[in-house]
Simulated assay, not measured.
Amino acid sequence: MNTKTEKSKDIKLVECPRDAMQGLQDFVPTELKVAYLNLLLQVGFDTLDFGSFVSPKAIPQMRDTEEVLGQLDISGKTKLLAIVANLKGVENAVKHNEINYLGFPFSISETFQQRNTNSSIAQSLATVEQMLEICDKKQKEAVIYLSMGFGNPYGDAWNVDIITHWTDQLAKKGAKIISVADTVGVSTPEKIKTILPPLVKEFQAIEFGLHLHSTPQQRLEKIEAAFEAGCTRMDSALRGYGGCPMAADNLTGNIATEYVIDYLTTKGLTANLNMEKWQEAMLFSTNIFH
């Protein structure tokens, strides 16, 4: 059964199995990854964040991204997004015609930028500039994540002006898609409603998304705040699995996709999803997340 509405075209749902799997201690066999991702590709999300081109020492779970990519069925409408953390990753990712988006975690926390990509904010800004140029030449789109966009656990300075400053810097470099990323679950409905609307108003050429993390108790109120604040690109993961292993020892899960689907359904905004395949993916996920 396909669920469709006229209003859904303005909402882009980004399913994030890569984010869900990357923190797992036990390596997920390649064939299991492929089977799971191919089910999710049949659901019909706008984008699938499927893997990353990063050092296997940093994220061992994603060391088979290239092998996985070669076995994915991309005959549907869903676009593929891969995460990169440096120019080597960018150069490896753009070789693959199947990949549409390259995502880069640009942190507004100096501590996390060093921890996550082993580079400073200034160095990362230079990387983003080169990445944007390469993406333009290779006909890829860059998604820049403002990591620690809602605060950080390290005591680094954080406020709305800092977010606006770095958004402006990225816009001047040519960024077209920016996703404000929570990373560690410190976002609140109040912060979401305070941060997003002014950005959308000031930087009208940029497509803004949200990548939120949350405890199960806060998911619904964060989802509601996100869409009320004007979010049109929402990251989530089936059952809310996942979290960033580079950010903290105690992972805070992603926003659960089923909560997003339920919320949009109540508002008459459900995306064009194959709900039978979604249910299959929900059942199959128990093979990966024990």
Rank of each mutant, 00 (worst) to 15 (best):
P197N: 13
Q113G: 09
V180Q: 11
Q204E: 15
A226L: 06
V128A: 05
G51T: 01
S107P: 04
Q123H: 08
Q114W: 13
G70M: 10
K4C: 11
A226D: 04
D64E: 14
F227K: 00
K222Q: 14
A205C: 01
K222E: 14
Y101W: 14
V260Q: 03
F50W: 02
D249F: 07
E31V: 03
I192F: 07
D49Q: 03
A58K: 11
N97H: 12
V143D: 12
E280R: 03
T5M: 08
V128N: 06
F53W: 03
E66G: 04
E98N: 10
P29N: 00
Q113E: 09
A58R: 11
R219W: 02
V28W: 01
F203A: 09
K77R: 13
K77G: 01
D73A: 05
E129C: 08
Q114P: 00
E66S: 12
I206G: 06
Y36W: 13
A85W: 01
P245L: 03
K4L: 12
D262M: 07
E6G: 01
D64W: 00
Y259N: 12
K201P: 00
V54M: 09
I223L: 06
L102N: 08
E110L: 08
K12Q: 13
L41A: 10
E190C: 03
G23H: 05
F104A: 09
N274H: 11
L125R: 04
T127A: 08
G44E: 00
R233I: 02
K57C: 02
A58S: 14
G268L: 11
E202Y: 08
N38T: 03
A93G: 05
L199A: 11
D26M: 06
S120F: 06
S124E: 04
E141N: 12
N97G: 03
S119E: 12
I11C: 05
Q61C: 04
Y241S: 01
Y36N: 03
M1C: 06
N118P: 04
A157W: 01
F50V: 00
I121Q: 08
S179T: 15
I134K: 14
T164F: 10
L72G: 03
T117I: 15
A229P: 11
E6K: 13
K267T: 05
L212D: 09
I99M: 11
L41N: 15
S8H: 12
A85H: 02
F27E: 06
I223S: 08
T215H: 14
V28A: 04
Y241F: 15
H290A: 06
K193T: 09
E6N: 09
A229R: 08
M282F: 12
L24M: 10
E258W: 03
N86I: 02
V43K: 02
C231V: 07
F45R: 02
P216G: 10
M62I: 01
I223E: 02
I144E: 07
V68F: 02
P60R: 11
W166H: 15
A171V: 09
D26Q: 12
K12R: 10
I11P: 09
A248G: 01
